[in-house]
Nucleic acid binder design. Structure first.
Lengths: 230, 230
DNA sequence: CGTCTGGTTGATTACAATCAAATGGTGTGG
DNA sequence: CCACACCATTTGATTGTAATCAACCAGACG
């Protein structure tokens, strides 16, 4: 981990998609002084299951996976944080140990906001607090959707769905560059099965693959597969 | 649905396990005027996926399942609300349509707190707001655990785990009285599989069954099965 | 007393995990 | 710059778990 001298937090300020967009100029200034922006190499952990949180993280550049170790040692990816997304807030709010780990899956720069700052915003800025509330509810919603999906949707449908979501999340990047293993971890299956299905999709002309990156070329088709049982 | 003249909300007041325990006497009085306590027969829905929330529910007596329809038409039980538990808060906070349904699985009396009251408490009572925050985080935590479980833990382990959790939740009741189908829906499997595994557990003397109700007699053993892959 | 719901058991099928082996790409150090 | 090692990917064969299909039973209730 390396501290950046020149934090490039384009999302922390202006961007309306950011949680911090509701901050006043003064709050931003305070934040700027309190926070630090750090660099993580691909594969490097940001925090680990079972340690105590000391602050909040926000992706400035790169990509981070939030994972939980399954009972058989395999890792389940709960979600992927992209630039502008914050993570590590649940345990911070609960003031309890992390129940998941976070690992950079690309070279990333990640901002760190100390707990005290976070709490200050939470108590003093109604809009910020509303945003966090909403974020928590959104997280619950997508987690519950994921439960239902994993329980009852076949792997093929789950992978189709994941590709659609990733495609949207990666907009502008035009390629999905997750490892097959990470893709498998995201939908709750194993590498080999994921690969087989991806290869099917390629033959069915739903996606294109060059090198390792995947490009969705028929969203409709994937959606049909994903919703097959609706 | 029948309005009760004599609401029996032992949990709404005193009980420290209740979210409402932090309310001042005045707030309780206001709440008492605003809320209503209704009776639902076993099998009766309280709210349905896709409708708009108008308030918050709190189980006074009975048992409620919160369910989501899977893509194949099977129902996934997200959680079970027991006396003192509130439910239906996420969509209320987000001000969006319900993403899940709730159905009484026993004859139940359920309190209803109108949205305006809920919001008033949320803004005026710091302890209440803290409680809701914590509740949201707890919900996320257990949802994420459930994701990992369903993804990687065999059905046998999941049923063992569910029985332990239910046994704890039902403390004082000493019997678990879910239908086999609900138990299956809770762990994400089908009735037949659930029945087979329950019957195995019976033969292994981990549980006892009379009529339909299940009694855990060897928690240790179930835990071992549940954590088999830790 | 028949119907209905919930429970049980058996046989079969199917999906996905595991095991095994080989290939292709990447990066490093000589 | 090449050789080697390592990692991600791919494909095939096999196994195992759990879903599905089917039939039957037991108790509840009008």
């Amino acid at each position: 981990m390396m501290k950046l001298t020149q934090p490039a937090c384009k999302f922390c300020k202006g961007s309306e998609s950011s949680l911090f967009s509701c901050c006043t100029p003064e709050e931003h200034e305070k934040l700027g002084l309190a926070k630090s922006c750090n660099f993580y190499k691909k594969g490097q952990p940001i925090f680990q299951e079972n340690s105590m949180p000391v602050g909040l993280y926000c992706v400035s550049e790169g990509l981070v996976k939030i994972t939980k170790l399954g009972s058989n040692g395999k890792e389940q990816i709960l979600r992927i944080a992209k630039p502008g997304d914050i993570f590590g807030y649940q345990s911070l709010i609960k003031n309890s140990r992390y129940k998941a780990s976070s690992i950079a899956i690309e070279d990333s720069s990640i901002c760190f906001v100390p707990k005290s700052q976070f709490n200050e915003l939470l108590t003093n800025n109604k809009a910020f607090y509303d945003g966090i509330m909403r974020l928590l509810c959104d997280t619950i919603e997508s987690a519950e959707t994921k439960i239902t999906d994993i329980a009852y949707k076949p792997v093929r449908g789950r992978i189709a769905e994941a590709l659609i979501l990733l495609d949207r999340a990666f907009e502008g990047k035009e390629h999905i560059t997750l490892t097959r293993e990470d893709l498998a971890g995201l939908v709750g299956t194993v590498k080999e099965t994921a690969i087989r299905i991806i290869s099917e999709f390629k033959h069915e002309k739903l996606i294109e693959i060059n090198k390792r990156s995947i490009k969705v070329i028929n969203q409709e088709g994937l959606m049909k597969i994903s919703h097959l049982y609706d």
